[in-house]
Nucleic acid binder design. Structure first.
Lengths: 267, 267
DNA sequence: TACATGTGTCTTTTGTAAGAGACAATCCAG
DNA sequence: CTGGATTGTCTCTTACAAAAGACACATGTA
């Protein structure tokens, strides 16, 4: 009865709006989007907004969210009609930590480093082709380097990024790094060739230092943690003021490399 | 040969309820089962075994696992054909911690307690009607109380369980506690009425002590953490040798209650 | 008062994902 | 070597979940 039928002709390549997503999405994908959206926003979201945020029908999100809340993956936030991550995800996350020696020891090492040096220290890994701060410990300096756990940053912006890509084929690297990734926060643009050259040097040297890349006031020192297979599995890094003396920087790098090497052994 | 179906005329009496299996399941539910199964087993599982474990068709699990691995919720384990939790779940879990003051402070308080007292200390919450050890810190005693984070234990076995159920209707409690839950590890059987009486006493007293319930050598001291609404949101507890003196026990309870009260305020 | 906006629960429709099964490729025990 | 068990990929069908949309009930605000 509805004109729905009439419209059914659907001129195919609709000229107007970007009917970007095929109308019907797998429920699991919706869920994955929901989780990503919550992760990106870092706060409880109303179900209506959630539906908008992941570009899905309200009714679908209602049913999915109910399932997820029942399962404990999500929880209703205080005021009643907002949702955020739930205890179950925390428990699963702890399971991951327990099953992952590198992460377990790496977290500890990073905490130690920041306590010993007073600088911000981070454990970084590749996460589905993106650079991810897996754990960070703030350090004691007055200024705070903004770096929440789980934050994802373009690989070329970081010292760790250069180490993590050591040993990858050029094609793979090109694939991981988008054009936008090469543009620094201040607008400067890196050349892909320079970046790839950096990767080679860093890999050979066994450490990497970048100055004033993400911001003008800090430099980043990083050392690689190797897997048993000899691949760079993670990096630990220190974020220090850009005017840190050559000598102190050298000392810190030595310290970092020693700790990273220790992590490589214990897994 | 779906003789599985053959045997049946599918009594089907239950309209829905736990259609244990056999019928077509929503993908999301399969995923939830997968996660639970991995959590229960605490180790990487082969895809074939996973399919058996969650009682699902192999082809389905293959596709779902691929989605989950691509999404980073699961990761292939070292040898290649086993899966376990992935980094994404860890990141989401950290998000949960960040958004949850009680958990964040509670973890810290528990760590402090076990360091100060040398005893095993735990933070416990209700998780979808089950008692859950959300965080535990081992203590320095030679013997190890087995209590992994995320472990779920029948409510009647614990001091914390008695506190967590304070303020619930009798019917709700009956619903949460199965017959099996009332049977202690050593075979003794609690009476539901006794348990409910315990809950009332514990709630009134503002703390709870149980002796030799889960094992013959320890007693468990617990104090409630209240939400702003006045509900018991969590408990912190200490596991001490059963022969700890009355006096020392009293001191520890006072300490516990003080810390729990502080948590109640800060959220 | 009307009118918009947001929320939560229904029903109906239909596109597609779950499932069964076939297949080749390993792997291992006897 | 052979035969059984396991692994990973593929194809096809149809049962069923995602979507659309109607509804009821709050809000706020002109």
């Amino acid at each position: 009865m509805q004109d729905g039928n009439a419209l059914a002709v659907r001129p195919d390549a609709g000229p107007d709006e970007d009917r970007n997503s095929g109308s019907r999405e797998k429920g699991l994908n919706r869920v994955l989007h929901i989780l990503e959206f919550l992760h990106a926003n870092q706060r409880a979201i109303g179900i209506g907004d959630l539906a908008k945020g992941v570009n899905a029908p309200r009714s679908t999100i209602y049913t999915l969210v109910r399932s997820l809340v029942d399962a404990g993956l999500l929880e209703m936030a205080g005021d009643g009609n907002r949702v955020y991550f739930g205890k179950k995800l925390y428990l699963y996350g702890m399971d991951y930590v327990r099953g992952n020696d590198l992460l377990r020891h790496g977290r500890q090492e990073v905490d130690n480093l920041s306590r010993e040096t007073g600088e911000t220290s981070e454990l970084c890994m590749l996460q589905s082709g993106r650079y991810t701060i897996v754990h960070s410990s703030p350090g004691t300096r007055p200024f705070r380097i903004s770096s929440a756990t789980g934050l994802q940053i373009p690989l070329p912006w970081t010292a760790s990024g250069r180490l993590l890509l050591a040993g990858f084929e050029r094609a793979v690297i090109e694939d991981m790094v988008s054009e936008d990734d090469l543009v620094l926060p201040d607008g400067r643009r890196l050349l892909l060739d320079d970046f790839i050259a950096d990767i080679a040097t860093a890999g050979a040297a066994g450490y990497c230092v970048t100055s004033g890349l993400v911001d003008a006031y800090t430099k980043c020192l990083a050392a690689p943690v190797f897997s048993a297979a000899g691949k760079v599995e993670a990096t630990i890094c220190l974020v220090v003021p850009i005017d840190t003396s050559e000598e102190k920087t050298g000392d810190l790098i030595a310290l970092l490399r020693e700790r990273a090497a220790r992590l490589s052994i214990t897994g």
